[in-house]
Design a protein around this nucleic acid. Structure first.
Length: 571
RNA sequence: GCGCCCAUAGCUCAGUGGAUAGAGCAUUGGUCUUCGGAACCAACGGUCGGGGGUUCGAAUCCCUCUGGGCGCACCA
């Protein structure tokens, strides 16, 4: 379907252009002409503000608007154009054109409002990216939903999208995981294992490892009893990933690529990055930072010898950062920079990184690294999601990772539903804190937006069930029989294109969630007032209305799928 | 101390520099001879945290203050 704002902007631009060619307007740049959906019916369906052109034209904005109206090219989309003070062009959509959009909805169906914004360019969204040491924590869930919805919107906008998961399966944490599983394995075989204070600090205590260990004991018996952590680590990692993927699958998230941080060690990429930075003069060796930080503390220098530092302060960072510890082991920052270089090298046109607010500083350092390597940092975009608080009975639920009934994304899904999780975590701007109200999410009432939206789809499906039962089928519907209520809903449908365009270009996927609620809000009154199968409805009118509700169902299914939610036939 | 985010209706929150700031919930009052009432209609409700500035025009941009949140490791 056509993007209404784009088309109307074009009409106004052409009319002003024609005015300039005819000498009715002086020559000046026609930039920034943007149509907006109108807020008031008496001001038309779309408005274009021409006030910015008053100065270059040296005319009153109202005069410019009048000239624009006068020279407006004809369009079957537009019924009427008016100039309004102080300088607006108000457009009224043609009702015939609006009715014809019902056909367009059927034609596009599940691809409704697929745009050409991306022009087939390659985009990559990196999200979740948790290490496979534990089930997905609730803290990751918002980024997961936001990232996947962003990917869906970019696809709708015409990008070729890849979803990527970055993880680390090397290092101390994974070794700890292997050791922890071994302990549980020995326990599963009936041995008692004494753990020192020191062991407990690094021990993964989650119940999931007991489950893995029981399976392992059944599978291998005591064959692994003398193995060190390596086999256990590999086993735990594989099980962990199965678990994480299963959790993500519950909310319909599927990554195309799992990128292993360790590969950057194996192929030497991290050392190439270090060398490149060194060549450019951004590396030095020292026992402490060459830049005194604000607190002037240098306690990290104590007896540790020389580390390898990156002059990130040259790029606006508040202090320099260590890339290689005095032990010779890289910090996570070095592979992180190498990873982002790798992403750029893979030729994506657009990169999006979904990060929790607590990782923002780290991202700044990586960005500094990319700039230091003289690579195009502008291709890397970040969606920072603020923290989530879980509320029950108006109280914040503590999300302890040690104990408690509530810590994982699975818990959240269990206690509410996959659809509720997707909607609730999406329906907030990423940069505001989010309160996830458990009581609301499970409530089966009109207070719950999840049900309100899905119910619209259910009601459409209900009409068709009833129609089928009565033997009514759509044949040659006459769209002229649609009334004002239906047209009002169709006007709202038109906004879907703008929502996709805007959310894909500003990386703000939450917009689709609010739009969905508005769409449902526009739907329910129509459903209540526009009967299809009532005895007093003329059969021809019933045909047109049935056809209309079929289109409405397509729109709801499309919107729900863009949010990764199900479109139920019954509830 | 420094960096980032937030402050809009009683609550939870939308709002792309454009006309009279919106929605859901809550509250109050209505609508059922029901294709699914998990619905609809109406009313009530605002110094957009305070103060400056930029602009033809500011909730939106800039500065500042206040109040919250998150970071500021030779952890990941």
């Amino acid at each position: 379907m056509i993007l209404a704002t784009r088309e109307i902007s074009r009409l106004v631009r052409e009319s002003l252009h024609a005015a300039q060619a005819a000498g009715k307007l002086p020559e000046f740049e026609l930039e920034g002409i943007e149509a907006r959906p109108s807020k008031r019916a008496e001001q038309g369906d779309y408005n274009v503000a021409l006030m910015p052109f008053a100065r270059p034209a040296r005319m009153s904005p109202l005069q410019i608007a009048q000239i624009a109206v006068e020279l407006m090219p004809p369009s079957d989309m537009v019924a009427k154009v008016e100039a309004a003070a102080p300088g607006y062009v108000n457009m009224f959509l043609s009702e015939d054109w609006l009715r014809a959009q019902v056909e367009a909805i059927y034609a596009e169906n599940d691809d409704l409002y697929r745009l050409d914004l991306g022009q087939g360019k390659r985009a990559q969204v990196e999200f979740v990216s948790a290490n496979p040491t534990a089930p997905l924590h609730i803290g990751r869930s918002r980024g997961a939903i936001v990232g996947d919805t962003m990917a869906r919107l970019l696809e709708a906008a015409g990008y070729d999208v890849e979803r990527e998961y970055y993880f680390n399966n090397a290092g101390a944490q994974m070794r700890n995981l292997g050791n922890s599983l071994k302990v549980r394995y020995l326990e599963a075989l009936g041995q008692t294992v004494e753990l020192s204070e020191e062991d407990l600090k690094t021990f993964y205590q989650g119940e999931y490892l007991r489950d893995f260990a029981r399976e392992l004991a059944l599978e291998k018996g005591d064959a692994w009893i003398n193995e060190d952590y390596h086999l256990f680590k590999a086993y735990a990692e594989q099980k962990m990933f199965e678990m994480i993927k299963a959790t993500l699958d519950r909310v319909d998230i599927h990554h195309d690529n799992f990128f292993n941080e360790n590969s950057l060690y194996e192929n030497g990429a991290i050392w190439e990055v270090l060398e490149a930075l060194d060549k450019r003069g951004y590396i030095y060796k020292a026992s402490k930072s060459a830049v005194t930080d604000d607190q002037g503390d240098d306690e990290n220098a104590d007896g540790k010898g020389e580390a390898t530092w990156f002059r990130s302060s040259d790029f606006g960072d508040s202090k320099d950062r260590v890339l290689v510890k005095s032990s010779g082991e890289p910090t996570y920052t070095l592979p992180d920079i190498a990873y982002h270089k790798n992403k750029l090298d893979r030729g994506f046109d657009l990169l999006i990184n979904v990060l929790g607010a607590d990782h923002y500083t780290q991202y700044q350092v990586v960005r500094a690294g990319i700039r230091a390597l003289d690579l195009d940092a502008s291709k890397i975009n970040v969606i920072i999601v603020q923290l989530v608080a879980i509320l029950r009975g108006g109280e914040v639920v503590r999300m302890s990772s040690r104990k408690g009934d509530f810590e994982t994304l699975d818990d959240l899904i269990d206690q509410t539903s996959a659809d509720a999780v997707r909607y609730m975590l999406l329906a907030r701007s990423s940069d505001t804190h989010l309160n996830f109200d458990l009581d609301l999410a499970i409530k089966k009432s009109n207070e719950n937006p999840v049900y309100y939206i899905q119910y619209a789809h259910v009601r459409c499906a209900g009409i068709f069930r009833e129609a089928a039962a009565r033997g009514v089928r759509v044949q040659n519907p006459d769209l002229r029989l649609l009334g004002d209520a239906e047209l009002k809903f169709l006007r709202k449908v038109l906004e879907l294109g703008e929502v996709i365009e805007l959310s894909a270009s500003t990386f703000e996927p939450h917009r689709i969630a609010f739009y969905a609620l508005e769409l449902a809000n526009a739907f329910h009154p129509v459903f209540d007032n526009v009967r299809v199968l009532a005895s007093d409805v003329d059969p021809a009118v019933a045909q047109a209305r049935l056809y209309f509700f079929g289109a409405a169902q397509i729109v709801f299914r499309r919107v729900l799928r863009l949010m990764g939610m199900t479109a139920p036939e019954v509830m």
